[in-house]
Design a protein around this nucleic acid. Structure first.
Length: 566
RNA sequence: UGGGGUGUAGCCAAGCGGUAAGGCACGGGACUUUGACUCCCGCACUCGUAGGUUCAAAUCCUGCCACCCCAGCCA
């Protein structure tokens, strides 16, 4: 495990009740149970054909989490049985993302392709047992003979060919004597089953393609339904956790394992509901489309629900783990509120992020009664919730930047910020009173004028007077220029999948707002990527990799909650 | 019309025959040198629905309804 243990995080709210997968495992471990005396052994089996997203994070937390909870182990395995879709580039990104999330597989990193030789031998065993045959039907013919919801499949004309003939043909398939699609190895199960997966499913197909691991060693590749149970069994997996759509593949999963001799274990497949989150999409196909169309700026665009996107956005591994641990595990198709993910991030960052001041839409504030060439330092806490994080010095002088939103010429009701005649506290500095403002001929605000009260140094009010509003500011003399990128939901509609319109047209153009002329306090000049800060009163931000020393770029990870209602 | 699943609040989700946990969201209040945080309070007389069994049903039984998945040589 990484330094911040997955189980001991304050945010990983442990519930006193168990979910259904835990219940099953507990039962399996009991005396007389299916895995009595065995070590719980799970696996996370991604196909290396894309980037991991928050939905995978749920699976990772369940797979690794169940192993951890029962003092077991969890393998990482690339399910690379389809060379035409997979690539090495995904392998490393998947490993990086899982490590970043805080999980480790020790030396148990495998490829399904490592088992190709054994899978081939086991397939021969099925043929010899007269449980599989080589079928020469074309893909369309197989489809046509599979039957319908109400009618059974019709048998392949090759179904009853002699096992020796199938064995020979299967060997020749392997030798590369036939072109793609010419024939398949099929299981002989039940043509009348209401479950299509049992109607003589294809076990092997011919694919003359270069495989990223095995090169051109193979031109026949096992199908998921045949390969997956074997991968699990060969790794002595006890509990094979997957998503709901594989529920009706379970009979086939069990069939493969039950009909083969010499397997080291008989894993139990358990299915749970995959994660959905509103205002986004979580399908590889759609995420890929967003990237390839250029609607977003790559897989790690901070608006993307990919782990690389969330990471760049400023999501912490801890917040994502916390989220996954708290959404629950069940078999109900569900869509979690995006604001729950945001809640988990705020919860973490509120506890751990240092506070700084930054001004997004700067307007000049001039303290007319403050000496022109004077400057002074104020001490400000790094995190009021954690005094042990200490304090730092910030500079103050006659001219400051404050946020446009904190000033109104005509304030609405309950506006506690700056307006002509009103007093406000500059955080950690002085109480000031607005004495006026200047606009250009078009009515655009140029500068605000104020006078400070020297008796209120540090923001205190020795006379006990209550100051309703406290605003953030940055000293114009020492301010550092920055670009700030504000993000919002990629889709303003809650469920882009449900719309009649093409989901690509539903991307909210306001999901990214770039502010170029922001001013941040000088302490941020030397910060590093991935460090999260709270910009006081605004939200949580982190430095983007696009940053350069002369041009800082910050991403807003999430805003602060705001109960202000005019 | 076949097979496999699932229905508890706006969203997740406990509950496993003894009288509806918790979280998010939302509303109200307290506190506040962040309109943040924190802290209080409120938020399902009812569990898809109709019956049945029982002293007692979200939990057991039966019927019905709704929704999701399955007819790739994808995973």
């Amino acid at each position: 495990m990484n330094s911040d243990s997955v189980n001991n995080t304050a945010n990983t709210a442990e519930t006193d009740s168990t979910h259904f997968i835990e219940d099953i495992i507990i039962n399996d471990l009991k005396p007389g149970g299916r895995f009595e005396g065995k070590q719980v052994h799970t696996r996370f089996p991604p196909e290396p054909n894309g980037y991991l997203h928050i939905g995978h994070a749920k699976a990772i937390v369940i797979d690794f989490g169940m192993a951890e909870r029962f003092n077991g182990i969890c393998n990482l395995r690339m399910d690379d049985t389809n060379p035409s879709k997979e690539d090495v580039v995904y392998v490393t990104s998947i490993q990086e993302d899982i490590r970043w999330l805080g999980y480790d597989w020790d030396d148990r990193f495998y490829y399904a392709s490592e088992y190709f030789p054994q899978m081939y031998e086991l397939a021969c065993q099925l043929i010899r047992k007269n449980l599989a045959f080589v079928c020469e039907l074309k893909p369309e013919e197989i489809r046509k003979t599979r039957g319908t919801l109400s009618t059974p499949a019709t048998p392949s004309p090759w179904r009853d060919r002699p096992t020796e003939e199938s064995l020979g043909l299967f060997e020749r398939m392997k030798q590369g004597e036939f072109p793609d699609g010419a024939m398949t190895l099929r299981a002989k199960i039940d043509l009348t089953s209401g479950n299509f997966n049992m109607r003589d499913p294809v076990l092997y197909r011919i694919v003359h393609a270069h495989h990223h691991r095995t090169g051109n060693d193979w031109c026949i590749y096992p199908m998921y339904d045949y390969a997956h149970p074997l991968e699990d069994a060969l790794e002595s997996i006890t509990h094979s956790l997957c998503s709901l759509e594989f529920e009706d593949h379970r009979p086939l999963y069990d069939w493969v394992i039950d009909n083969l001799d010499g397997l080291p274990s008989r894993p139990r497949q358990i299915e749970f509901a995959r994660l959905n989150i509103d205002h986004t999409v979580l399908s590889k196909r759609k995420l890929r489309a967003l990237v390839e169309s250029g609607i977003v700026n790559g897989w790690d665009d901070p608006r993307m629900p990919t782990l690389s996107g969330l990471r760049r956005r400023g999501y912490t591994p801890r917040s994502i783990r916390s989220f996954c641990n708290r959404i629950g595990v069940s078999k109900v198709n569900s869509t979690v509120d995006y604001n729950f993910l945001e809640h988990c991030l705020r919860e973490d960052l509120n506890e751990n992020a240092e506070r700084v001041m930054g001004v997004l839409k700067p307007v000049k504030l001039i303290i007319d009664n403050y000496p022109e060439n004077q400057s002074e330092y104020f001490e400000i806490e790094n995190n009021p919730n954690r005094p042990e994080d200490g304090t730092r010095q910030i500079t103050f002088s006659r001219e400051l930047w404050i946020d446009e939103d904190d000033f109104r010429i005509d304030p609405p009701r309950k506006f506690h910020r700056l307006f002509p005649g009103n007093e406000v506290r500059l955080k950690a500095a002085y109480v000031i009173r607005c004495t006026g403002y200047r606009c250009d001929s078009d009515g655009n605000l140029l500068e605000i004028h104020a006078e400070y009260d020297p008796a209120t140094r540090g923001g205190q009010t020795p006379d006990g007077r209550k100051i309703k509003g406290t605003i953030h500011w940055v000293d114009a003399k020492t301010a550092v220029e920055a670009e700030v990128r504000l993000y919002d939901n990629l889709f303003s509609v809650a469920d882009p999948d449900a719309s009649d319109q093409d989901f690509m047209s539903l991307v909210d153009p306001g999901s990214l707002i770039v502010l170029k002329d922001c001013k941040v306090e000088s302490s941020l000049a030397t910060t590093e990527t991935q460090t999260s800060f709270q910009f006081l009163r605004l939200g949580y931000f982190c430095l983007d990799p696009d940053s350069r020393p002369d041009r800082l770029v910050f991403n807003r990870s999430v805003s602060l909650k705001d109960s202000y209602r005019p």
